[in-house]
Computed example of a mutant assay.
Amino acid sequence: METEKLPALPFDEWTETRVTVHLLLQILGKTRLKSTTRKNHWWYITLYVTPRGFGTYSIPINDGLDSFEMEFNIKRKAVIISRSSGEDIVLSLDNNPTIGDFYNGFMAELHGIGVYPKFIDKPFDVGIEKHFNEITEYHHYDWKYINTFWKLMLWNSNVFKEFSGRFYGKTCPVHIYWHHLDLAVTRFSGKKLPPMDKSARILEKESYSHEQISFGFWVGDTNVPEPMYYAYTYPSPVGVDEESLQPKGAFWQDSNGSPMGLLRYEDVKNSTNPRKALLDFLESAYQAGAKRAKWNIDELTVPDLDQL
């Protein structure tokens, strides 16, 4: 069966739509953050790629007797709040609401089902200091690019899941961290690290409590204005950037004083076998970090079934 060609996602052609979608997903993510019981490494705040768009999965309410979930449903051009009891609540995006108008309507619907998430009602790490209900300049929904973004994230999610299944150790779900809008999966060696300095943000203290190798994809930002794959080992072992990366075109680059492996999405998209190209990058970055950090690679590798 011939593989469908991966879509182009030019960074500069959907800037306003990208920011609108990012802000909308931050609202869903912050709601999940304050409505869900804690799980290690912030795994309880993330979003997931679904067959319809981006969602939270089930969130318990009413002492666990009921639940609800939120989904940015691209097929229906709406944010849908589904409940275990009661009808779905549909907030249409077809009329291009501003972020402020969406936020007000969204919160009113949550209050109507008894959900009162008390989060900081401002965007996080995107350079916008307004409250969500004050943001009127973003109301852009280019559904061609939103659909392309979702399809690309869906494909990446599926490849990341295949890669994730090769590892016996602790691994996070394949999920979206909404503050940077990156899809990520992380492997852990099991080694606990010394506590960070008190000046470190709680975000980093919780995220980097244990030795890890993380892999991800993001659609770009002002510093890297194109879609890109990344991988890094924390703490970064000496000489990791002397290890080779695959496929041809992958490279090491300094990121805040530590090497990060990078691979342009364009190189994956234009390769003869995109899935293999991405898997080769993920595996080579893992081998580089695990080797230099002295992980027990053989013990942590899942063998093929015929090798059991």
Rank of each mutant, 00 (worst) to 15 (best):
E4T: 12
K294C: 11
R76D: 12
N223E: 15
T31C: 11
K294I: 07
G165L: 10
W14P: 01
G53L: 00
S35V: 01
S199P: 02
N104E: 13
G239C: 06
T98G: 13
W43D: 12
E266D: 15
N73W: 00
R32F: 00
L23V: 03
D12F: 13
S214Y: 00
E283F: 08
T171P: 02
R166L: 07
T17D: 09
S271Q: 03
I89S: 12
V185S: 04
S35R: 00
K291G: 12
F68R: 00
P247Q: 14
K192Q: 10
P195C: 10
E266P: 08
P51S: 13
G220W: 05
M107I: 15
K170H: 11
T186D: 03
M1N: 08
T37Q: 10
Y177K: 09
I99A: 05
T31D: 14
L181H: 07
D125N: 06
F72W: 10
S284K: 09
I135A: 02
I213N: 06
Q307K: 07
D94M: 11
L279P: 13
Q287F: 12
V159A: 04
A293I: 04
S258A: 05
D221N: 15
L25A: 11
Q212G: 07
D241A: 02
L33R: 15
T15H: 13
V90D: 08
Y168P: 00
K192W: 01
Y103M: 05
F188K: 08
E13V: 11
D12S: 09
M196R: 13
N296H: 14
P225R: 13
P259F: 05
P117N: 13
L305D: 14
K118Y: 09
A231R: 01
R83E: 03
S207A: 12
T36A: 06
L262P: 03
K170G: 07
R201P: 02
E71S: 00
A8E: 14
L91M: 07
A184Q: 06
Y168R: 15
M70K: 00
E87C: 06
H139Q: 04
V238E: 15
I61A: 08
E243F: 05
S244D: 12
I27N: 11
